[in-house]
Simulated assay, not measured.
Amino acid sequence: MASIDATAAGSGAVNAPYRMCRFTGLKVDQAAETLIKVNAVTAVIFLAIGGLMGLGVALTRWPAIQILPPEWFYLVLTGHGANVLLFWIIFFEIAVLYFASAILLGSRLAAPKVAWLAYVLMVAGALMANYAVLRGDSTVMFTSYVPMQASQWFYLGLIIFAVGALIGVMEFFATLVVAKAENTYEGSVPLVTFGAITAAIIAVFTLASG
């Protein structure tokens, strides 16, 4: 384990633990690395949950099997949509944003504790929304508005998840500022980072608008 060389990184640099990747030669901030792994693994878990629900829906539509009872079909379909089209994608996007900022730019993560707060809020919100769906009173798919109203726990879960995701995106932007201030890269940002910036801007508008 080593620390960032303040002289090489800029006069305003802050010491942070990192390691050198033996394959790419990239300087990897260990706090960012842990958060990337945790968010990516969590994304895959929600993808697996949503995938199993989708399999149940598909097998139910197969007349020879019809694995789910009628009252469970739209319930499971709602859970499938939320997990596959929302939770897994955004968890994975947060992991990509941290990689495109802290890792590709050789920077420390701006505020790891804030990033962990974002993760906890996202997990809590996703679990709360899934709980509301499995209770059976939030079978609304993506039409969770009047006249198809879901449980208050479903809406609260989505709001908490969105707040956590927004905090994660803000952490990404803050890390870009840190990288620029500490001169961890030269010239313009890499193309992957530029793409991540575009995705982050879209995410802010999407999450903020509900």
Rank of each mutant, 00 (worst) to 15 (best):
V123D: 09
G125Q: 00
P70E: 05
F154S: 03
Y98Q: 05
F46T: 14
V57W: 13
A111N: 15
S188Y: 13
A31T: 02
P17V: 02
L59Y: 11
A100W: 14
I103V: 07
S101I: 14
L156S: 14
V120A: 10
W88K: 09
L121F: 09
A32K: 01
L77D: 10
L191P: 14
I103Y: 05
I202S: 07
S107C: 10
W116C: 05
I94D: 13
T175D: 01
E182Q: 10
E93I: 14
N183A: 11
V169M: 05
S144Q: 12
G136R: 04
T139D: 11
A9R: 01
V177C: 11
F142S: 10
Y98W: 05
V192S: 06
G187I: 08
R135Q: 14
P69R: 12
V133D: 04
V178Y: 00
M148Y: 04
G136W: 02
W88Y: 09
L52F: 02
N83W: 06
A129I: 01
V177G: 04
L55A: 15
A179N: 01
A118W: 12
A13W: 03
S107N: 09
S151L: 01
N183L: 12
G81H: 04
F154T: 06
G12D: 15
S11T: 15
V57C: 07
A40M: 01
A200E: 05
L26H: 15
Q149M: 11
A9M: 00
I36Y: 04
L59R: 15
P147A: 09
V44F: 12
T34N: 11
L121C: 05
I36G: 01
T78G: 00
A129V: 09
V28L: 08
I89K: 11
M148P: 00
F172D: 07
F73K: 15
T206N: 01
M141H: 12
V76I: 07
L59T: 12
M128F: 12
I65M: 14
I160E: 00
I94Q: 12
M20K: 15
F73L: 10
L75S: 02
A132S: 08
M20E: 13
A13N: 07
T193E: 13
L134P: 05
A196E: 03
A196M: 08
P190S: 02
K180Q: 07
S144K: 01
R19G: 07
S151F: 03
A2Y: 00
K27M: 07
I67K: 04
L68S: 12
I197Q: 14
A203K: 06
A58G: 02
G168C: 11
A31I: 01
S138F: 09
W62D: 11
N130H: 01
K27G: 02
P70L: 12
T60R: 05
L77M: 04
I4H: 13
L26Y: 09
F172N: 04
Y74I: 11
W62L: 13
L75R: 15
V177L: 01
F161M: 06
